[in-house]
Simulated assay, not measured.
Amino acid sequence: MTNKVKKVGLYLGKFSILHSGHQFVIDTALKEMDKLIILIYDAPSSTSIPLDIRSKWIEEIYASSPIEVVKGWCGPEDTGYSDEVKRIQNEYILKMAGDRGITHFYSSEPYGEHVSEALQCINRIVDIERKTFSIAASIIQKNPYLYKEYIHPLVYPDLITNVVFVGAPSTGKTTIAQKLSLEYSTVWMPEYGREYWEEHQIERRLEPWQLTEIAEIHLTREQDKRMEANQYLFTDTNAITTYMFAMDYHGFAEARLVELAEAAQRRYDLVFLCADDILYDDTWDRSGDVNRHIFQQKIKSDLLKRNIPFITLQGSIDERIRTVKKVLHRFKKWTSFADGLLDI
């Protein structure tokens, strides 16, 4: 009786946006191999999406599969088929493959020939003519929002710029989010707390557990909206504001609401604080302009305490929207927003 030789595949790429074509190769390899190694190139000149994020996509989607993700930090970025480029690429791949015993090299590209030769393994070409998924990766990368049917639900939310508007009641958050969603042909996330409050409030108050429930359901709905969004999601309020209401009403917040507020510190790409210099809309469900000013100062103080960068919106609704559009024009997701300070 002889021992079965373990079949180990290697597949590599930048996976700037992991799409159905990539997954078809991965799924094919998993059907044929005992184990699949996926080498992901850092490629900072090709994509701003961090290597750790692109690695996370594959690790989470294939969490129950025999896959090992190898992060290719500082890998060669030159492409082509000159002898020098092939030599540099082959040397790097051999170094990263190490002693993993690669038996098959998977690709949908002509470079499979020279890489498999360097690895001394089988060249396994998959759908090189793109018959299964005819759309080119370059087209998806130019406008992933138009071709999101090719993008996994765990990947797509990371492509959306989530913009949140916070502030005291009657500072224009809802109007701004609505108008911007129309202007950018996308969706917006309404404040769930308002809907919940109108249905469940007693003497204009909610219980601590109800405020936690608001934050939970708001988050679920917000995650769903990210799948519908076109580049931007404009969000009206978040769990931090709900936490502030809990502190204002009761002097404490339930542990779960505290957790949700802390998680919200990292969820948004841009945070806009809507100032209270706008005309107060004194409806029956609000507590007056004086309380608005006090609550506004508490929100601002909490943002500063949490070390959350924010941009203050002042003036009329139109002036506020112009400010947001100016910021969005300069903002690029997955880059350091603070670098823009150097241009001031």
Rank of each mutant, 00 (worst) to 15 (best):
L182W: 10
S336R: 14
P190N: 10
V126N: 05
L180F: 14
G288N: 15
E91V: 14
S65H: 09
I214Y: 01
Y62C: 07
T212S: 15
L51Q: 08
S82C: 05
E117Y: 10
D289R: 14
L146I: 05
Q141T: 06
T171S: 05
T241W: 00
H19L: 05
D276L: 09
R322Y: 13
P157W: 00
R266L: 11
I151Q: 00
D52P: 04
F133K: 06
W57Y: 07
R204Q: 14
I102D: 00
I58H: 00
I26L: 03
P76D: 15
D42R: 11
H19N: 05
K31E: 14
T79M: 09
K4P: 04
K131I: 13
D318T: 08
S64P: 06
V25H: 09
T235W: 02
D27H: 06
T161A: 06
A29I: 10
P66A: 05
I294F: 06
N162M: 04
Y156I: 10
D281S: 14
D127V: 07
K14F: 05
F105K: 02
L119M: 12
I321H: 05
S287C: 08
F15N: 00
G98D: 09
H104L: 07
W73R: 09
Y196H: 08
V164A: 04
E191K: 01
G288K: 15
Y196F: 13
H200M: 13
Y11L: 15
G172P: 02
D302M: 09
I135T: 02
V258Y: 01
V258K: 07
E183P: 04
V327D: 07
K179E: 07
W284A: 15
I214F: 01
K14Q: 11
G172F: 03
P157K: 02
I122P: 06
G75R: 03
V271C: 09
I135H: 00
R330S: 14
K31L: 13
H22R: 08
T175F: 02
R204H: 14
Q141F: 09
E259L: 13
I202Q: 11
H104W: 07
E198G: 12
H19E: 03
E91D: 15
I311T: 10
T186Y: 12
I176L: 04
V115D: 02
Y150H: 12
K7E: 14
S181Y: 03
R130F: 11
E68K: 11
T47P: 05
G251W: 06
I151Y: 00
Y150M: 07
E228K: 15
M33P: 08
V258T: 13
I49R: 02
K142S: 07
Q141K: 15
I308A: 14
K71Q: 05
N291S: 10
L303H: 08
D42I: 11
D158T: 04
F165T: 00
E319R: 13
F15V: 01
E222S: 07
A338R: 12
Q231K: 12
R124G: 01
I67E: 06
Q297P: 02
I67D: 03
T171A: 03
R87L: 12
I160K: 03
G315R: 14
I37W: 03
M227G: 13
N238S: 10
F245C: 04
S134W: 13
G9A: 08
L270Y: 04
E60I: 15
I344G: 09
V25L: 14
Q89L: 14
L304K: 13
T132C: 05
R204E: 10
R87P: 02
E91I: 13
Y156W: 09
H293S: 14
